[in-house]
């Protein structure tokens, strides 16, 4: 950068920065302004509901458009339950792939495997939903849910009628959708672990797996945590695929077979049918809560991942 800096300093004495630099800066600030504007507008639209229901919006599970009484608890529960289920499935798999790609795979295999994971991120949400309704749900209903119900039916998670539409299906779809995010970033994190760390452990007589578990993963744990947070943020905000397979019933049930309802789903389903101002405002408040959760997750994750290096630019769902 040296010469550029010198040129810049020398010229700075004689002339101001050009209009082009100024324009570029304005557009940069425009993006920042856009973020603020989104928060402001959604918050303003939600104000009526916030004012009317206060904190009970979070604790009440009564969602009753006819009487204009709204509580978001079932939607918050559905969102958290389906997202956590997705994490439980996706995190081990993503870490496995990331470890495979960074520590084990021969060079010729790395690109094709990364490519497949990237393509998963490119498939539109609504196509996942279509596949979920017509392929995954019937398959889960006729095979997996019966098997789980018979083998583990004594647990509250695997009881009740098996329809193939519900938390389990939503969790699996979400897991597939967030897998690319967690895999790509964990891989970057693992690749960034200095080679000397591995060599030290191997020289001490550790096996490859011991090196990974005791050296590589602990070294990258902050970044991996950030990757998982980004994945969670994606799962929480995911809309179409979940709406199509989760059953859309505002119930709070421990059973994974039971239908549920998430925050994005209720917005999609009721937004255009909201008759009263309060109903629309309640949906906006759900949007605001969702926004707050994803904002928090993203900010924490970006700060954690930033420490490792730059976040890889992903076309698909980044």
């Amino acid at each position: 950068m040296a010469i550029l800096e010198i040129v810049r300093i020398r010229r700075g004495k004689f002339r101001r920065p050009g209009w082009f630099a100024f324009l570029a800066r304005c557009f940069g600030l425009l993006i920042a302004g856009l973020m603020v504007l989104i928060i402001w507008e959604v918050g303003r639209a939600a104000w009526l509901s916030i004012h009317t229901f206060g904190f009970s919006f979070f604790t009440s599970s009564r969602w009753d458009p006819v009487h204009d009484v709204f509580g978001a608890l079932p939607f918050i529960y559905g969102t958290l339950a389906s997202s956590l289920l997705a994490l439980i499935i996706a995190v081990p798999l993503s870490l496995g792939i990331a470890i495979f790609l960074s520590e084990m795979a021969p060079p010729w295999l790395k690109d094709p495997v990364s490519f497949i994971v990237e393509i998963l991120a490119a498939i539109p949400s609504v196509v996942y939903g279509l596949w979920g309704i017509f392929v995954l749900a019937p398959w889960l209903r006729d095979g997996v849910e019966d098997w789980l119900g018979n083998a583990l039916g004594f647990l509250p998670f695997f009881q009740g009628p098996r329809s193939g539409i519900g938390l389990l299906t939503a969790g699996i779809i979400l897991a597939i959708m967030i897998l690319p995010t967690i895999t790509a970033i964990s891989r970057e994190v693992l690749v960034a672990v200095p080679q000397s760390q591995r060599e030290a452990m191997l020289a001490l007589g550790g096996t490859r797996w011991e090196t990974i578990v005791r050296v590589v993963l602990p070294y990258g744990r902050v970044g991996i945590f950030g990757a998982v947070m980004l994945g969670l943020g994606r799962a929480v905000g995911e809309t179409m695929a979940v709406t199509m397979v989760i059953g859309n019933q505002p119930k709070i049930s421990l059973s994974l077979f039971s239908p549920a309802y998430t925050m994005p789903s209720v917005i999609v389903n009721e937004f255009s049918e909201a008759v009263t101002q309060l109903h629309l405002s309640a949906l906006m408040e759900i949007g605001l809560i969702l926004f707050a959760i994803t904002l928090l997750l993203n900010i924490v994750a970006l700060l954690l991942v930033r420490r490792i290096g730059t976040v890889p630019v992903q076309g698909g769902r980044m």
Partner: peptide
């Protein structure tokens, strides 16, 4: 910009 990228499209 990265945060905007993570805003759910429904928002």
């Amino acid at each position: 910009t990265d945060v905007l990228n993570g805003v759910p499209s429904i928002i």
